[in-house]
């Protein structure tokens, strides 16, 4: 039987990998992928807590976060495409028009 801490450590690892991706990637799509990993790490936590607390609320919450995440990806990719049409690049550090 694998205990709760194992799942929490897995969640923390996935979250950290996503965080690393967000901080090191320069392509906007790469950053978006990192954010997705971070959000999915939360889902691992929620499901593990729901299982070990014997509470169904966490599972329902996970369904909500999955659907929100999908909406977020849709909006994110739409913005990426809108920018690519005008700029022909989605490298985050080339988007430096706004500064002061």
């Amino acid at each position: 039987m694998i205990g709760l801490p194992a799942y929490l450590i897995l969640g923390a690892l996935v979250f950290s990998i996503g965080l690393f991706g967000v901080l090191t990637r320069r392509n906007a799509v790469g950053i978006l992928l990192g954010i997705e990993l971070m959000l999915n790490a939360v889902n691992i936590n929620l499901v593990a807590f729901a299982r070990f607390n014997g509470d169904v609320a966490g599972l329902v919450f996970t369904l909500f976060t999955i659907s929100i995440t999908v909406a977020e990806v849709a909006v994110g990719l739409a913005i990426v495409i809108a920018i690519f049409r005008v700029r022909r690049t989605v490298e985050a550090d080339r988007l430096d028009l706004l500064r002061g």
């Binding site: 979250f15 996503g18 967000v22 906007a28 950053i31 978006l32 954010i35 971070m38 959000l39 790490a41 939360v42 936590n45 976060t65 977020e72 909006v75 994110g76 913005i79 990426v80 809108a82 920018i83 005008v86 700029r87 985050a92 988007l95 028009l97 706004l98």
Partner: peptide, 22 residues
């Protein structure tokens, strides 16, 4: 400028949301 603002707002906002959710 508008697209760049949307991109920055989205990436940092989604990043913050993942912390909040965690």
């Amino acid at each position: 400028a508008s697209g760049e603002a949307a991109m920055k707002y989205f990436l940092l906002g989604a990043f913050a949301s993942s912390f909040l959710l965690y």
